[in-house]
C-alpha cells in the first residue's frame, strides 16, 4: 500500500499525489487528511494532482468527498493541476465535481486558497460583530 504524506506548511495542509493510487491507499489518504485537519487546525487544504493521469469514478468521488468533508470541518479545499485529458474524461464519464474548487497550478492554487481563507475569516468576524451588536442592543 502507498502512503501519501500530508504536509503542514504554515497554515495549510499540502498533499501531493505522485504515485498511482490503488483504492485502498486512496481511502487511507482520505482518512489521513481528515485526521490531520482535526489535529493541526489547518486553515486550508491543497491537493496537487499534477502527476495523476487516471481519475476514474472511485478516485473522482474520493477527491470530491475530501473537499466536501474538509469544508464541513472548516478549511476550504483547492485541487490543483488536473491534467486536461483527465478533466475531459471526468466530464464525459459524467462525474460532477460540484463543490470542488480547482486551479491550474500550485502557485495559482495557493493564492486562491489564501483568498478563500481570508474571505472566510472576514465573514466570521462580521458574524461575530453582528452577534455582539445584537446582544448589546438587546441589553
Amino acid at each position: 500500500m502507498e502512503r501519501i504524506p500530508v504536509l503542514k506548511i504554515s497554515d495549510f495542509l499540502i498533499v501531493t499525489i505522485q504515485v498511482a493510487l490503488d483504492d485502498e491507499s486512496a481511502l487511507k489518504l482520505q482518512e489521513d487528511i481528515l485526521e490531520e485537519i482535526a489535529k493541526t487546525k489547518a486553515k486550508g487544504l491543497l491537493i496537487d494532482i499534477t502527476a495523476v493521469d487516471i481519475v476514474d469514478s472511485f478516485m473522482g468521488r474520493m477527491i470530491r468527498d475530501i473537499a466536501r468533508m474538509a469544508r464541513l470541518m472548516g478549511p476550504p479545499t483547492i485541487v490543483v493541476g488536473m491534467q486536461p485529458a483527465v478533466a475531459i474524461t471526468l466530464v464525459e464519464l459524467g462525474l460532477k465535481m460540484t463543490g470542488v474548487s480547482c486551479a491550474l497550478n500550485l502557485e495559482k492554487g495557493l493564492l486562491m486558497l489564501k483568498e478563500m481563507v481570508e474571505a472566510k475569516e472576514r465573514e466570521e468576524r462580521t458574524l461575530e460583530a453582528e452577534e455582539t451588536e445584537g446582544y448589546e442592543a438587546g441589553a
Binding site: I54, V55, D56, S57, Q83, P84, A85, I88, T89, L93
Partner: peptide, 17 residues
C-alpha cells in the same frame, strides 16, 4: 493521443474494479 489514452485507461479501471 493523451485524451484517448485517458478514456481507455479509465474505462478499464472501472471494469477491472
Amino acid at each position: 493521443g493523451l485524451v484517448d489514452q485517458s478514456r481507455i485507461a479509465t474505462a478499464v479501471s472501472e471494469l477491472a474494479r
